[in-house]
Design a binder for these strands. Structure first.
Lengths: 218, 218
DNA sequence: ATATATTTTTAGACTAGTCTAAAAATTATT
DNA sequence: AATAATTTTTAGACTAGTCTAAAAATATAT
């Protein structure tokens, strides 16, 4: 049996290691999970014993195929629950993460597959992140960050890189949501801030914001 | 903070003690929870320290108002999730308990109140058990057990006392569900079995069955 | 290439929850 | 009322996960 804590470590190693493809440092995990390096070392040994990860002392940790499979399944559950919360229970996109952190650990294949069907097999969560299907396949969409958008072109907002509550609330207050159309009006060379048009409003956003918003050309 | 284990003990003490009204023995809890008496003693001390229960050595344990409040809230969540699983995700009534045992521990007031609204404030779960409202108020329906029904009278099935998978599957195979009409045709004095009519079918049920089915006169 | 700084691991301790086995209290029986 | 049977509690040990502090390994800087 896999424990809740093991699941959380696996998920974090997956995210920190570019979707489970690269090796992750002990300290990076400790910082991300708000624990200490010594706790991470212990857990990483355990994950290695249980074949969820490959680990050599002082060399960082990488997920095995099994570990990646577990991670993808947790992510599938997390994102499907997020869709449920927004679509059916009227949560806003900045409220869903916390609750989904708990719902993602409920273990029932039938539950998650029926939920998937009930939601009509959504391909993306409320932050634009792709939802893997039953087989763990992701359907990625081509997207760029706002910071890389061309002046004069028109885009559609398709996701966020930072899904912190504060960033999402900032977007809300500026009427930016998934699906919102954005035209790039001007790029300020001094600080890389951007003047953009959103539904007939002109606003200026910082480089920081521009690095955290995903767009698709339309 | 209350732990998952504490919640499970509180819930069990509530059920074993006639909805939190009477004292419960250490052994009864141990049997119900599949643990040992010594583990129960430890936990009961802890619940007492945390003001969820009153406990005196060798005298059994009773929930406090606070403990009852916690129990009712868990039951509310359990039963609402059961309705969700049956109504929205096409689970059958014998599959929901196990999953609801986990969902009931998710801690989010908004989640459960929105779920309640989404389900249109159901008053009973798929087994006919009452669902407490936000304030913890139950809406009981007058009901009798089949064993106490009068020969010749007509009833509607409104609940089960045993919600084990095997009993529910037995009911399925005999076309008995919540809302099914039942007429009592004959009571066999020898073994208290009953001949009943269900939707133009006559079947005989044992006393065991008759003690676990709730009816309402129509 | 040697010293310094950083990262990682080990060692040992703590908490929550569990167990077994033995002791203590309560209840039932004669 | 004394003994036997049952129930409950205590004592001590175990696991999972965490921590601090010290030791060991790796990486960086001169």
């Amino acid at each position: 049996m896999i424990t809740l804590t093991e699941e959380n470590y696996i998920k974090e190693i997956y995210h920190l290691g570019s979707n489970g493809s690269t090796s992750v440092n002990t300290n990076a995990i400790a910082v991300a999970m708000n624990t200490k390096a010594s706790s991470v070392t212990d857990m990483v040994k355990k994950l290695s014993e249980k074949k969820y990860a490959d680990y050599k002392k002082y060399q960082g940790v990488t997920l095995t195929d099994l570990g990646r499979h577990v991670a993808v399944n947790i992510i599938r559950k997390h994102r499907l629950w997020e869709v449920f919360l927004v679509e059916k229970l009227n949560f806003s996109w900045d409220e869903v993460h916390e609750v989904a952190e708990h719902l993602e650990h409920i273990k029932s294949e039938k539950l998650i597959n029926q939920l998937d069907a009930f939601l009509e097999f959504p391909k993306h969560d409320p932050h634009g992140d792709p939802i893997p299907d039953k087989e763990g396949k992701f359907q990625h969409i081509e997207k760029i960050i706002l910071a890389q958008a061309e002046v004069g072109s028109k885009y559609k907002c398709v996701g966020v890189d930072d899904s912190s509550s504060s960033f999402l609330k900032y977007l809300d207050s500026n009427k930016i949501a998934l699906g919102t159309n954005i035209t790039i009006l001007h790029k300020e060379p001094y600080d890389n801030s951007l003047k953009i048009e959103i539904e007939d409003c002109e606003i200026v956003v910082s480089q920081n914001v521009a690095k955290n918003l995903y767009l698709k050309k339309i």
